[in-house]
Design a binder for these strands. Structure first.
Lengths: 208, 208
DNA sequence: TTGCAAAATGAACCATGTGTCATTTATATT
DNA sequence: AATATAAATGACACATGGTTCATTTTGCAA
């Protein structure tokens, strides 16, 4: 008798599915991905995957959760290691510029697709709002830290500024996905955000 | 003998399919819509639709073309009827705010989905870039008109400014679709664009 | 009214995907 | 080595969508 498989191995299997799923979602996007694709990518048998995940959506949510955690961590590192809040924000924009060049190999496109098409499904929308609030929370904490330090003196509500910033970055990113990073002039667009964000945050440019 | 059906009736049939398809795309989005859905919505028989359109994509492209034309017309009307270029741009933003409240009944979501998931398909991407350039063209003509009249004195290239403006609007719109217009604070975000656009266009605020 | 060809139909076939479950495989324990 | 049982398999039943095409319907011309 005996369970024969440790929790550790079980977790490995789960990870194996998630890795395979990530490749599939990158390759085919969200809506067109199938459980079959994922099983085949994982090189496992049909029925097996259902022991771990019931639906494609469940798998995708697990992937998002992982990326959300990584993002959260990256944010806290950035904040801790920057000389000023603005410097952290500036580095964030630099990171985004870099990310623009590897969009085809990232989950970003599937993620936006999932996000966009989700509004038709009540349950998914609830989850989407949760994800959005999480991402927004990171930016808002950053802005609040800047206000607390006296670095920023915004005239608009912090919430709104956070939303504006995320819309901007997402707009640029989705355009870059659609027409290509070069065609979108993504890097120049991000550079142009700097004075806008300074305006929003009430940072006065130093003369000279 | 005889063809029995006039070109006019043929055009009506075509229109009937397009109307049905539009409803389906609004309801299900792009990727999940099927020819079957469209045929059923049009209350016609299965095979019949293939006499008019071969693929879902062909239908969607026809819909887009229609909307593109309408958009083009709206733009020229706006430009012709406004006292200044900035006034036209301002009205455009007001229109966008209104549009935010009817997103669920518009093709917008399917359009963004099509746009986003298109980057994996070479042919579709070529068409996407064409659509993007058409939309961008409208904005660019507007900016150039403003420059010619001495209303705008931008420091960035016109092309880039146009791209920034469209990214901004698209970012807000896709966020509004995903989490809801209210949750996105879409109207307030658009209002916040006004000083940004003025900054980009080199319009000096009048004191007082 | 009849004949005829265009127009329209929908059954049928094919391909693909989902999810189940009887069967096989592998291994820890005895 | 034998046994028990968890783990894994993949054939199968079912559903859905795409596409074709033999058949039926339609309405004009003769």
């Amino acid at each position: 008798m005996s369970p024969k498989i440790s929790d550790e191995v079980k977790e490995q299997r789960r990870q194996q599915i998630l890795d395979a799923a990530e490749q599939v979602f990158i390759r085919t996007g969200y809506e067109l991905a199938t459980m079959k694709n994922i099983v085949e990518e994982a090189e496992m048998s049909r029925g097996w995957i259902y022991l771990y995940f019931q639906t494609k959506e469940e798998i995708f949510e697990a992937l998002i959760a992982k990326h959300e955690q990584e993002n959260e961590y990256m944010f806290s590192q950035l904040l801790a290691s920057s000389p000023s809040i603005w410097a952290a924000l500036d580095r964030l924009l630099t990171e985004q510029k870099k990310a623009m060049n590897t969009l085809e190999n990232s989950l970003a496109s599937a993620y936006y697709e999932y996000f966009l098409s989700g509004y038709r499904d009540k349950d998914r929308r609830i989850r989407l709002i949760r994800h959005y609030d999480a991402a927004l929370g990171n930016i808002i904490r950053l802005i609040e830290a800047g206000i607390a330090k006296g670095e920023f003196r915004p005239t608009l509500p912090t919430q709104l500024i956070g939303k504006i910033m995320t819309s901007n970055l997402e707009g640029i990113m989705s355009l870059a996905m659609a027409v290509g990073t070069a065609q979108a002039e993504a890097a120049a667009q991000i550079d142009a955000l700097i004075p806008y964000f300074k305006l929003l945050l009430g940072i006065n440019e130093q003369a000279g």
